[in-house]
Simulated scan of single mutants.
Amino acid sequence: MKSDMELKRQVEEELEWDPSVDATDIGVEVHDRVVTLSGHLVSYAEKLAAEKAAQRVAGVKAVVVEMDVRLLHTDVRTDEEIANAVRAIIRWTVGLSEEAVKVQVEKGWVTLRGEVDWAYQSHIANRTISSMRGVLGVSNLIEVGGDAAALDIGEQIGKALQRHAEREAKRIGVKVHEGTVTLTGTVDSLAERSAVRGVAWSAPGVRAVVDNLSVG
């Protein structure tokens, strides 16, 4: 098992390697394999990228984010400008109407509410909006509707996991109840854990994912 000092060094190296992150603005501390990131970043997208970079390092048990976003003067937008841009993104990238998803912006923080048929629509909207200049954060409260049999959902997720990584699929349990998928088992890294969650969210009929996976 890696020591905390070794994990700290590898997380710092991963942050320096990621071109979307300015590692000089980020502090890294590790205690009992839990990584704490601190500092001031110039965008919400960079904050998310730093968190994902730390999660990619094998052996990291959890990531605590204590970073805040301080926009560059050139990136500051009014709430009205952000709201108009968000509505355009939802319409053009996901194909959803203003009636399907409601947008609220308060001091640069975007909140999305509504209902969609597929979970991927919610994820695309969230990912794209998180990369926008002027956005300080995103609360994605979009619910996923649609009905699908639990057996069908479980089978589709199982097949998808086998296509992605057959060895890992054998160590992961999938239970479905009323559209809620519960994942159990062991994965090798936080990045693999995130990938498994992504597979579960991509299945039709999934409304929520409960992640009970442990990192070995």
Rank of each mutant, 00 (worst) to 15 (best):
T128L: 12
R87D: 11
E99N: 13
N126E: 15
V110R: 04
S139D: 15
A85F: 02
I90K: 01
T111G: 08
R87A: 02
L141D: 15
A119D: 07
I129L: 02
Q104P: 03
S97I: 10
T78M: 07
R87W: 05
S139R: 12
L96S: 15
G134M: 02
I142G: 03
A119I: 12
E115Y: 11
W118R: 14
E81W: 05
I89K: 04
S97Y: 10
D147W: 12
S122D: 06
V103F: 05
A148S: 09
V144A: 03
V110P: 11
T93Y: 04
G114T: 04
Q104T: 14
I89C: 10
A100N: 01
Q104Y: 10
V94W: 10
V101D: 06
S131F: 00
W92F: 12
V103R: 12
D117M: 14
E80N: 11
H123N: 05
E115D: 00
V138Q: 08
R133V: 02
W118M: 09
R87N: 12
S97W: 12
A119P: 09
G137Y: 03
S122P: 02
E143P: 10
D147V: 01
Q104H: 00
N140M: 10
I129H: 04
G108T: 05
W109P: 10
A148V: 10
R87V: 07
G134T: 01
V135I: 05
V110E: 01
E143G: 05
V105W: 05
G95I: 09
Q104G: 11
V94C: 02
E99C: 00
V86D: 01
V116N: 13
I129K: 10
V103E: 08
T111A: 15
N126R: 10
A149W: 05
W92N: 15
K107Y: 01
V116Q: 11
V94K: 07
A125T: 08
